[in-house]
Design a protein around this nucleic acid. Structure first.
Lengths: 345, 345
DNA sequence: GTTGTAGTGGAAAGCGCTTTCGGAAGCGCT
DNA sequence: AGCGCTTCCGAAAGCGCTTTCCACTACAAC
């Protein structure tokens, strides 16, 4: 049960001919040790293959060099790619990453954060939209505030209603770009397949889309379902069943776009000939499918990396936000509307 | 720095009117407490919102209730879906999951495992193929043996050359099913786009494919590249550039199949009219694309769940292996070869 | 009435580390 | 030489938990 040959800090101290306290100060970069002595101790530690015991550190010191990452569902490519960025950047910094699922449920999300706090992780990164309803965010906000008061570092990805460091993709701009692209192609009636309307990501993308469409006098019809492939299927079916004669469908993320594509294929509606389809995110796979999806690229892995970088900075001053750009990626799923199609009469 | 209102075990003990020792026994399921008293203590603990301090436990007890999961790259849907299964099952059991990247590198993989061992995680799950070259696996095997000797639980997913609990998909069967399907459609010349040949997953799938093709007198041509979408692109290009007049391409996993589909689309080769394409895995997205991919389903999430289940069993007897089935999923990317196509002369 | 035998309480010893505290040593200054 | 000052170091006190070792109470079995 006990590890037999584990080198402890006392062993290092003995080998280096210093006291335990000095060894500790040398290892954890504390002050009170001369640089040369510290260097010497660290050299000895390396030679002995010493690896600090995380739990002893956690018990004695408070927080540990570990990142807690909350995503909704790691099976979702959007979160998988963000996580990949987090893990890569964290590894470069010698930090381990604990991932938990919030399952798109605010209650579960709060529970996961609490669990992470109790594990004494040094930083918490929350990925995924927040609710625009402040009441739903309040408990989370409080929990995070308490955690930060204790020295914890927090960063959120893609949500901006919390008073913490944030990495924000350009959702509004992404929506605008997609809309401009469609307007440029000549579409006049567009269906918007959205996720839950109280998510800030959905709202922002919708704002971008509608601002452009409204100015161009393009009619839009919006349906709202789960922010997943299944939601895309439901939304597209609803749109089609309602008999809206739209010439293009914008899904609020690529997962929904994939669902839309599937429904259109099953119904024998050709893309882009009879219906243009666009998404948002540019998850890896949508570049390879036929027709390759027109979408607005959100730099997911980079968002993950930046979030880790935010938790690393020393100064604990006021919340900072990093805004990342987007990029319109035009592929084959969009084209000018064909006259004669989609006009029921 | 110190958490002010953290409920500790002594608090629970006081509230329940029992001693610290009894409370500890009640919480960690040890013997020496009546079930009713234990239940009472746990109820009080719940009411107080008590969450045990992981680090104190880790320090005192040896290993902690946490799972270390090693995958190659979480951005890869295959690993993302496995991870999803692991996280869900672990959460149901109150365990946290630490994910690290091995980046398809045996050296890195070993380093990750060592790091996890030092973190005193209670179990380690390694996902991803092993090398059939025993020399490459030896260091890992030794490290795991030491860890197990200390009470650590280990499970591997999809590799069978280690003396530990394993969850194994039916790779051979999957290969056979795909081959039978293609033989049944009348294909006589098939290209195999494989990953690295020293990975047991690749070998097993290849064995299944070739055994059936050989018996049916079908000619095969194999190329080997990275086990990723990019590898699929390279492999398909190599196959096509070599002028092999195959009527079907089997990619050894869906990621490679996606790459193959992309190359074929770029070259204007129609699927399945001019070329049938099949994959293995059935990652979520391949059901939605056009043409929907014919593939052999490997139950990834279930593999993740089973791996966690394996680490949970009490008896530390000899290695157990759980073999899961596969399922041929015929979609639109395969059809009978068209006479006249692909015959250069 | 004596002996077991669970179940429980109390006390205490760590687990390996960080950190506080006070002392020792080295420095420049008067 | 004497003073205060800064540096650096060693001893020791925990961090919250698991465990072990007894002691003690019931209550059943002999």
């Amino acid at each position: 049960m006990k590890q037999p040959e584990a080198t402890r800090l006392v062993d290092v101290a003995a080998a280096a001919g210093v006291s335990l306290a000095t060894a500790s100060r040398a290892m954890s970069g504390g002050s009170g040790v001369s640089d040369e002595l510290a260097g010497h101790v660290r050299a000895i530690a390396d030679r002995l293959g010493y690896i600090p015991n995380v739990h002893a550190r956690g018990l004695a010191g408070g927080l540990i060099a570990s990142i807690g990452l909350v995503v909704h569902e790691i099976g979702d490519p959007y979160f998988a790619e963000i996580s990949s960025g987090v893990i890569h950047r964290a590894a470069a910094d010698g930090q381990s990453v604990q991932i938990t699922h919030a399952d798109r449920d605010p209650v579960s999300e709060l529970a996961q954060v609490s669990a992470l706090v109790m594990q004494r992780v040094g930083s918490i990164i929350i990925a995924g939209s927040g609710y625009t309803d402040a009441a739903l965010e309040a408990p989370l906000d409080e929990a995070l505030a308490r955690y930060r008061a204790r020295g914890g570092r927090v960063a959120v990805i893609g949500r901006h209603h919390l008073a913490v460091d944030a990495v924000l993709p350009d959702n509004v701009g992404a929506g605008r770009s997609i809309a401009q692209h469609l307007v440029g192609l000549g579409h006049r009636r567009v269906g918007l397949v959205a996720g839950p309307l109280d998510l800030n990501t959905v709202q922002d993308r919708l704002d971008g889309l509608r601002s452009v469409f409204a100015r161009a006098g393009v009619a839009t019809h919006t349906v709202s379902h789960a922010f997943t492939r299944e939601g895309g299927i439901d939304g597209t079916n609803e749109l089609l069943d309602a008999g809206r004669d739209v010439t293009a469908i914008v899904a609020l993320n690529d997962a929904m776009a994939l669902g839309a594509l599937r429904v259109l294929r099953e119904r024998g509606i050709r893309v882009p000939d009879e219906m243009s389809v666009a998404g948002v995110d540019d998850i890896t796979v949508v570049a390879d499918i036929a027709p390759a999806l027109t979408t607005a690229r959100i730099p997911m892995a980079e968002m993950g990396r930046e979030a880790v970088a935010l938790t690393l900075r020393r100064e604990a001053d006021e919340p900072r936000r990093i805004e990342l750009g987007h990029e319109l990626v035009v592929r084959q799923s969009t084209s000018a509307p064909r006259v004669g199609y989609n006009s029921p009469s």
